[in-house]
Simulated assay, not measured.
Amino acid sequence: MKFASEFRDPAAAKVLLAAIARKADEIGATRAKPVHIMEICGGHTHSIFRYGLDKLIHDGVEFIHGPGCPVCVLPMARVDECVEIAETPGVIFTTFGDAMRVPGHRKSLIQAKSAGADIRMVYSPLDALELARRNPGREVVFFGLGFETTTPSTALSIQAAARERLTNFSVFCNHITVPEPIKALLDDPDMRLDGFIGPGHVSMVIGIHPYDFIAADYGKPIVVAGFEPTDLLQSVLMVLTQIAEGRAAVENQYGRVVPEHGNPVSLAAIADVYERRPSFEWRGLGEIDASGLRIRPKYAAFDAEEKFGIGYATGRRNVPELEGCACGSVMIGKLKPTQCPQFGKGCVPEMPLGALMVSSEGACAAYWQYAGAREAAE
């Protein structure tokens, strides 16, 4: 447990919790409501509930769960298009496991697989690339989704396919970016946020400066955090300290992993392969300008949207959510998972109605697994 146990030390956690309580009391002397801190990353949401930080922390601090689960923010229309590609004769459709059970309007990928489509779970786009090499007579499509964390590996796979001149490999690109939805949340007049816990894995790729606008333009503090209990507690304390001192800055608690300016190799691959879409649809947030990536024309031979004539070029968007599903409101922090009328009733992990109950980073899955919500529902 070396290099992990140090960040799970109960004594260190108690010291941080006491410091948070003092700082929260200091802030609370000037305001009636708790400090609302949004953790953007779904991995942080699960850590908070896995270690019970929501119960241990001072009641003057409230965690708000943000749109940081890449599978969860994917709109149903894109899932429908995945199924359409997968059901095309001769296609091997590959995807990360989290995406298999996300409901579309007609069916999920796992339902399409059970009906005969050749859909395979992979751990990396490089696995999909290897399938294309081994199956030259079939089109292998990789479902490229995720934030900046997974974007470089897809880009590198496309570059490799171009070098090898593969003609049977393509990517259905649904990669998205973190800063733009944060701006959309901050522009929402109904959203009351006091600060942010910034995503650690994303920031490992892009660095900390893409978040400068949060402090400079909106006056909100953001602290990029690691995923262990003391990482998150220290980050909360850093956010509270900024608020108490009346300042707003971008700070990096996760300095052991996150470089200030990101990973130059990853950033170069992203810049080479992708360009910004004019807009992209997010579950719960609607269309957000420049928040999605698409494959550049020079790599069009590896763009599944071009090969299969689907996606934004066809104008098919905005498929409505299933009736009674509150994934969109939960995704942007306006509702807690337990406030969704379907939570634990029509929507459970075995038969999910919404994506947030499916993904390993979904807020509803975190509540169900760690927060005692399962027992309450039963």
Rank of each mutant, 00 (worst) to 15 (best):
V265K: 10
G324V: 03
G292D: 10
G344Q: 12
L267G: 02
A271K: 12
P337Y: 02
S279V: 01
E305Y: 00
A268N: 05
R277Y: 02
V273R: 00
R283G: 15
Y299M: 13
G311R: 03
G309S: 08
E287I: 08
Y299E: 12
G324A: 15
V319Q: 05
N318C: 08
D272K: 05
F280W: 05
R277W: 04
I270R: 08
L293G: 07
G344R: 07
G309R: 10
G346R: 00
M331W: 00
G292C: 04
G328N: 04
G286W: 02
V265W: 02
R283D: 05
A271Y: 01
C327P: 08
T314W: 01
P297M: 12
C325P: 06
I310E: 09
E281L: 03
G344Y: 03
E321T: 13
G315W: 04
I332L: 03
N318I: 04
G311K: 08
A300C: 14
L335T: 10
P320W: 02
D289A: 11
A269L: 12
L267H: 01
Y299D: 09
P320F: 03
G286H: 09
G346A: 15
Q339S: 09
P337K: 04
P297H: 04
G315K: 02
I332G: 05
A271W: 04
M331I: 10
A300K: 09
T314N: 11
E287P: 09
S329P: 01
A301S: 15
A301K: 10
K334F: 02
G284C: 13
C325V: 00
P297K: 14
L322C: 07
V319Y: 00
G284T: 13
T314Y: 02
P259A: 04
T314Q: 11
A300F: 10
K345Y: 01
E306G: 11
I270F: 00
E281H: 11
S266I: 07
E281F: 02
E306Q: 11
F302W: 11
N318G: 05
R317A: 06
G324P: 08
A300Q: 12
Y274Q: 07
K334W: 01
D303G: 08
C340Y: 03
V258R: 03
A269Y: 14
R296I: 15
P278M: 03
F302D: 14
A268Q: 10
E323P: 01
Y312Q: 12
F280A: 14
A313I: 02
Y299T: 13
K336S: 14
E321I: 11
T314M: 05
A290V: 10
G311W: 02
G286N: 13
P297W: 06
E321C: 03
L293M: 13
V258D: 09
N263I: 07
K336D: 15
N263M: 02
G262T: 04
R277P: 04
Y274H: 03
N263H: 09
P341G: 15
I332S: 09
Y299W: 03
V319N: 12
G292N: 13
G284E: 14
E305H: 06
L293R: 06
K334M: 09
N263K: 12
R283A: 15
P341V: 11
H261G: 10
E305K: 14
L322Q: 01
P320T: 05
C325A: 08
E323T: 08
H261K: 15
T314P: 03
E275N: 01
R317W: 00
R294Y: 00
G309L: 06
R277L: 15
P337T: 12
I288C: 13
R294P: 05
P278N: 06
A269H: 03
E305R: 00
Y274M: 06
A269P: 13
S279Q: 15
